[in-house]
Design a protein around this nucleic acid. Structure first.
Lengths: 343, 343
DNA sequence: TGAAGTTCCCAAAGCGGTTTGAGAAAGAGA
DNA sequence: TCTCTTTCTCAAACCGCTTTGGGAACTTCA
């Protein structure tokens, strides 16, 4: 059942039927009612392919997700981010096109999306420091919103980000207030923009109290359970081990906990841990009582916001940019405590 | 730059240019070469929207991912499954359209995909026991491949699945061989098909040794860390606690480990644990040495296979069905050991 | 009564490709 | 030389919708 069939059944022209269904004012309300009920009756749904060609809009947004090449790791936060974003797309009648692309091959994909015209805009995931993709998308004229920021981009652009710097500064200060002085940082890979900001927050807090950062306590890893375990095990084996850990993700924390337990230490008593919690649906930081003290910010909410911004940009391609800086809340859990007395 | 422009520059008709680029035989090789180089020079990429309308193919595959409504949980295996599937789609020039839909609302989405024609086929995720979606997709005539199976569907259909029953039977037998008799099962929700099969495998192994299943040791939960923790904590607090655990996912296992450690027990010595490991990229079961003894099967590989099957079905819509049953390997890790002597 | 608006609907031209059916040019066979 | 193929190219139709530019019928106003 297509527009032509339907219009014939109604004894109207395709034009009128199309206008009636799309809410144009130049059609009699009585006629419109007839058309609408007929459309429902015959279960008429306009062909998406035809609409796209006729309107020149793809009615789709692209999410280009880089996959870490060496270990082929897909960042697990994507599932929740996309779940949030998807809600908005569905409401607006947009499709979500997912493209999982090896690290460094994204430029090609963006160019192709632009020239083939199968998306109206894209969400940029996992921005690196000084990310070249922003420049490219500007040149291509493809609307986009960045999840995160890319320090160093000279042109303005739209983004949604967590205040990573402040979150890690606060977390560090919280540990300092508890008396900790040897605080280790287990960060994500520090060519990622978020990781740089977190390190800055950590260093800022230490500096504010006149404490020198110890490079032996600062690590930058891919955020997996296994690496979290290894790094923390090494840290605990140091002659002067840290008394507190600042961990960039829940998954690192799971490995860290394994290392801590293995060494016979008790979380929150022998050693304090603060994590950053993206509030992933399948990996909650405790159901009622938080397990870890954490800086929390829902990545799903970020997805919702980013999608909303992108749809807005597509609908109204003004040259202006919107930014949204989300503050992480500091959740006090059971994994932090005062500096233990020397044993 | 569109087909018309390009053909004018070449002094050829759009027909010839189109045919040259699409490899039709009725065009002179010399002409074809000219066309191809010109296309490259002017960076001509055919408009995806026009191709779709003209050919009647959407050049896209839909993944409808149900979101558990109460807790809004997105199954974390999707990220890896889709990463695997995406490789195949990219090669074939297909887009991957992701649709995250509240539990139970999938039927509407499938119908809409069919009538709007924005996909050529779909992958069915998370089949339930006697899943109605299979019947629906048959009626709609939309090509599909199921990741998993749905016991009770009367018509044949294509699927890729792990041999869940055998995996859990082997795992249970392995524990029995180690002398364990009180083996607990912490399964996924048992309206999910995979969970039913796993339970059957577990029960089959017990039955094979003449051991009665104890309902107090069998649990069915949403697979989260938090619930894994709660259930295992309760199990360990029983007057006669289990000496071994069979866990349906790595994430449950993380919670289980927390409960075990909290109780002061040592994994693999005081209590044995076997998990099912989907080999998620960000949640490996140990880098070199496996942490948990596990039945392992790569969900990413399953994604690759499912995508390949679907593309095949779309290209060649024969009435036949393909099935692929993947055997999980049993990985011996450090989390299992012989039944400890009575303390 | 005639002119000027309104209101409602339609024919036709698009969007940018693919595909059909046919024709011109070149080569082969008689 | 003429006819029949084969080879290559093209004009035009088509995919299913939107959108432009009228135009008929009906009001309103002078």
């Amino acid at each position: 059942m297509n527009l032509k069939d339907l219009s014939q059944k109604l004894g109207l022209s395709p034009t009128t039927v199309s206008r009636a269904l799309n809410g144009y004012p130049e059609v009699n309300e009585e006629t419109r009612a007839k058309v609408v009920t007929a459309a429902k009756k015959y279960n008429y749904k306009p062909n998406a392919r035809a609409i796209r060609l006729a309107t020149g809009r793809a009615m789709a947004v692209g999410h280009v997700i880089p996959i870490e090449t060496r270990h082929e790791i897909v960042n697990p936060i994507f599932a929740d981010f996309i779940a949030g974003a998807g809600e908005n797309y569905a409401k607006a009648g947009y499709d979500l096109i997912l493209s999982i692309v090896p690290d460094g091959d994204e430029a090609r994909v963006y160019r192709e999306m632009k020239s083939r015209g199968n998306v109206d805009g894209v969400i940029v995931h996992s921005p690196k420091h000084d990310d070249h993709r922003i420049q490219l998308l500007h040149e291509l004229g493809l609307p986009f919103v960045v999840h995160g920021r890319a320090t160093g981009a000279e042109l303005p652009y739209s983004w949604v980000d967590v205040n990573n710097r402040r979150a890690f500064q606060r977390a560090t200060e919280f540990l300092l207030d508890l008396g900790h002085r040897r605080i280790a940082l287990v960060n994500g890979l520090e060519f990622m923009d978020f990781a740089i900001r977190r390190r800055d927050g950590y260093l800022g807090a230490l500096h504010g109290r006149g404490i020198a950062a110890d490079p032996a306590l600062m690590h930058s890893i891919e955020m997996t359970e296994g690496l979290g375990y290894q790094i923390v095990r090494n840290l605990l084996a140091l002659p002067e081990p840290p008394t507190a850990l600042l961990l960039s993700s829940m998954i690192i924390a799971l490995g860290a906990r394994r290392a801590i337990v293995e060494r016979g230490l008790t979380l929150g008593r022998d050693i304090s841990v603060i994590i950053h919690d993206d509030d992933l649906s399948y990996m909650k930081n405790g159901e009622d009582v938080p397990i870890f003290t954490a800086t929390r910010s829902s990545v799903r909410e970020a997805g919702r916001i980013a999608a909303g911004m992108l749809l807005e940009t597509i609908a109204n391609p003004a040259p202006s940019c919107t930014n949204r800086l989300l503050e992480a809340e500091l959740i006090i859990g059971q994994s932090t405590g005062p500096l233990p007395l020397r044993s």
